Amino acid sequence: MFSEHDVRFSEANLRRYVQLGLVPRSRRIGQKGKNQGSRGVYPIRAVRRINLIKKLMAERYTLEEIQDKFLAFKDDIETLDEASSTLLVRFEDKIAAQAAGHRRDRLFDELRAVRRAAAELLEAVHRLEKLLIPAAGARRPRGGGVADPTELL
């Protein structure tokens, strides 16, 4: 995907980011046909995460700083979001299969309340994360490192 958009990003960097826990692991998908093996498929959040990492590295953060300061809670928050969404869809499907009537209406009302509570929980978790972790775009003084392209002579 990166090469299609002329973004420099190597497979070695991807492997390193996965090993450091910065990017979620791939899921292996088997290829059709005899002896075709399998290939790794990454969730779309991996692309967003890589873009964030590249942005922070351009701001001269190290991988260790990024890991400690910016991505400390990301995987757990994303897992919570995905799991709650999946669970709510399963509840909705189960309720939709119920016979029409007062009980079904009451279940849908309860589901709406649970959806609101889940959304409020995620908002609260994001707020807490922002309070604990400095803004990603915040610059801080830093010596050494590679010169910015605008600093090159």
Rank of each mutant, 00 (worst) to 15 (best):
V47N: 00
I44G: 02
K69F: 14
T86N: 09
I66N: 00
I50N: 01
K69Q: 15
T79M: 13
A97T: 03
S85K: 11
T79K: 13
R49E: 05
Q67P: 01
Q67Y: 12
R90V: 11
D68Q: 15
D76V: 13
V89S: 06
E92C: 01
A46Q: 03
G40M: 05
T86R: 09
I53D: 03
M57Q: 15
G101N: 04
K54S: 12
L52R: 07
F91T: 04
I44W: 04
L88T: 04
S38I: 04
E65C: 04
V41C: 04
R48N: 12
I66H: 03
N51H: 06
E82A: 14
A72C: 11
I95Y: 02
D75P: 13
R39T: 07
K54G: 06
A72M: 08
L88W: 01
G101M: 03
R39N: 04
A96W: 01
L52E: 07
A58L: 11
L88P: 01
A58T: 14
Q67H: 15
G101F: 06
A72N: 12
V89Y: 04
R45T: 15
D68V: 13
Y42P: 02
L56F: 08
A96T: 06
R60E: 14
E92G: 00
R90E: 13
L56G: 05
E78Q: 06
S85E: 15
A58E: 12
T79W: 11
V47D: 00
L88S: 00
R90H: 12
R48G: 09
P43C: 05
P43Y: 03
Y42M: 03
L88D: 03
L87Y: 12
F91Y: 05
F70E: 06
I53P: 00
V47E: 01
Q67T: 09
Y42L: 05
D75N: 14
K94A: 14
T62F: 05
A100W: 01
V47H: 00
L56M: 06
S84C: 11
R48C: 07
A96D: 07
A58C: 06
A100I: 11
L87E: 09
I53N: 02
Q98T: 04
L71S: 05
V47G: 00
F73N: 13
I95M: 00
L80A: 14
K54N: 11
Q98R: 01
L56K: 03
A100K: 01
K54V: 09
E64I: 12
I50E: 00
